[in-house]
């Protein structure tokens, strides 16, 4: 896959990893019916870390990050997000969803609302922000993703890359402490991938904690401080990007990398 993430120098100065724990997963297991989809997952993510999750299709990457904001429920083990333990208690789930933003492969913008309304909806209804303030925040983030002029359009009138940037801005409007990305560029044409990756890089530069499922290995190399390789519902290998790409330990990782990088 493409190695080009960005041409410019990446400012790693602010990408500091603190020793505060953002996400902690202990012995987590999940089944779909009888199908054991996630097996004994253990993972600790510190505040400020950028983690890329890779792996073949069906390996459970999406399922893993969707468990983190309770879009899927897990049956065994414990997930702690930002100090809150994920349980069936709706109050905890709501609390975690407020702190965790998520960006989807297919954007999931609300087609009946304008871009601005898409951005202000959750702050107004969930955070109870006054409308005016919410709109100001929304415009701020739209400027950040470089499409303030689209504020009054509907999602259907935007290109895929623009829609994905709106989706990122929409999550940011909730001022999340952690961002989850599930293949944010897989539904996009090559020239739009760059604009979305650039936005994500900027976010990383500001010190956001990010978990990114992606096949963009260029992005992983440049931005991630850890790459996780999953297969058959397990974490097979995790390492710093340099080591991960240049010196993979497991056979499955090697096979995967050779396929995806076309060596």
């Amino acid at each position: 896959m493409s190695e080009q993430a960005t041409a410019r120098e990446i400012d790693r100065s602010k990408m500091q990893v603190s020793d505060q724990v953002a996400i902690e997963i202990n012995n987590m297991n999940k089944w779909y019916g009888a199908f054991h989809v996630l097996r004994d997952i253990n993972l600790t993510v510190n505040q400020g870390e950028r983690i890329v999750i890779a792996g073949p299709s069906g390996s459970g990457k999406s399922t893993l990050i969707r468990c983190l904001n309770a879009l899927e429920e897990h049956q065994q083990g414990q997930i702690t997000v930002d100090g809150t333990v994920l349980s069936n208690d709706l109050k905890n789930i709501d609390k975690i969803r407020r702190e965790v933003g998520m960006v989807f492969q297919h954007f999931n913008l609300f087609p009946h609302l304008t871009i601005l309304e898409n951005l202000t909806l959750a702050p107004i209804w969930v955070r109870k922000t006054p409308k005016k303030e919410a709109e100001e925040t929304a415009m701020h983030f739209l400027e950040k993703v470089k499409i303030p002029e689209q504020a009054s359009k509907y999602p259907g009138q935007l290109s895929g890359g623009q829609q994905q940037r709106v989706a990122i801005a929409r999550s940011l409007c909730m001022k999340p402490r952690i961002m989850l990305f599930d293949e944010p560029t897989s539904a996009l044409d090559p020239e739009m991938i760059k604009e979305v990756l650039d936005t994500m890089i900027e976010l990383a530069e500001e010190g956001m904690t990010m978990l990114v499922v992606t096949h963009e290995m260029g992005f992983a190399r440049q931005v991630a401080n850890r790459v996780i390789f999953m297969d058959a519902g397990q974490i097979v290998e995790q390492n710093e990007p340099e080591e991960f790409f240049n010196n993979p330990k497991s056979e499955r990782t090697k096979l995967f990398l050779s396929q995806i990088l076309g060596h």
């Binding site: 999931n108 609300f110 909806l121 959750a122 209804w125």
Partner: peptide, 24 residues
């Protein structure tokens, strides 16, 4: 995805229904 978008933003069931799902 519309339900998931609403859930991931922290809207509760009735808010999601009223603001996202039912209008569409």
């Amino acid at each position: 995805g519309q339900y998931e978008g609403a859930d991931s933003l922290g809207l509760d069931y009735w808010q999601a229904q009223r603001l996202i799902i039912m209008p569409q």
